[in-house]
Design a protein around this nucleic acid. Structure first.
Lengths: 144, 144
DNA sequence: CATATTTACGACAAGTTTATCCTAATAATT
DNA sequence: AATTATTAGGATAAACTTGTCGTAAATATG
């Protein structure tokens, strides 16, 4: 469903958020150790997320990544997916037609639009803060 | 959402079905002309769908592809996706954890399972026959 | 200012999906 | 049997995604 890049990005952001809740900046090494993703690739993805202002990064000693409490509450999974994969997941015809709308729909248009808008809604209403709280409480896990 | 292979496969099957409703076998050239997909790649996908008994193929003059009326009604989009992409779309953790279930879920597990099961249900309740009727009636289109 | 620590970034490599090409197998017609 | 029309299938190529590596830039500390 998601690309690997998205999977790694979402998990990294959640992990950073859990540590930021404890006022702790995390280094890339900590992140990949705790989410089980390849280091260099994850670093590249975090670079993109930094540019999109989803996470803040600091170079040098005592540097690393962090997310402000405010951001954590306002940023949702849809923002992360958009920053990494663009809007391709949300737009475009399910069967690949160059144009497809209710006036001239592909055979699956109506049903496809319905489930996709549910997916979009789900991603938009799932905040990083909530996900981080789940991990913090021990109810959910980031690695296995 | 779907792979290109699935997009081409679904469209090809729908087109074959519309022609089978008129008792006409179709050649690969007709198919790609009417759904706008690359010929050799589409032929390969149809080979897989033939092996899975989703479509019937005949070599030689007057050969081509056809789908029986019965099959058309019993086969749904989920069957096509399964034949091409396997069950990977339906199973597996949304964040890529090797194991993920309600006992030890990833942070997105519950919400993810919900939308995915809606997707699965949608695919399972969408028959080729219905999709072909939509195209036949002119209400929906396969190429643009 | 030198050193150590950390992210940034670009080049490259490996793997997967998508796409093409060529030949073989099958079957209908003459 | 020869010819022609068609799918089957393997080898190869191109494009995209995933992953690695090395060096540069930034910054804290002594």
């Amino acid at each position: 469903m998601f690309s690997k890049a998205c999977e790694y990005g979402i998990k990294a952001i959640i992990y950073i958020a859990t540590q930021s809740l404890k006022q702790e900046r995390v280094k890339i090494g900590d992140i990949v150790e705790n989410v089980g993703s390849p280091e260099a690739f994850t670093a590249k993805i975090l670079g993109a997320l930094t540019k999109h202002n989803i996470v803040k990064s600091y170079t040098g000693p005592y540097g690393g990544f962090e997310i402000e409490r405010d951001s954590m509450k306002s940023i949702n999974v849809a923002d992360i997916v958009f920053a990494i994969d663009g809007e391709s997941i949300y737009n475009g015809c399910g069967l690949g037609l160059s144009e497809c709308n209710s006036a001239k729909p592909c055979p699956m248009h109506d049903k496809f639009v319905k489930v996709r808008s549910e997916l979009k809604k789900m991603l938009q209403t799932t905040s990083i803060y909530d996900l981080a709280q789940g991990v913090k409480s021990g109810r959910t896990i980031l690695i296995r």
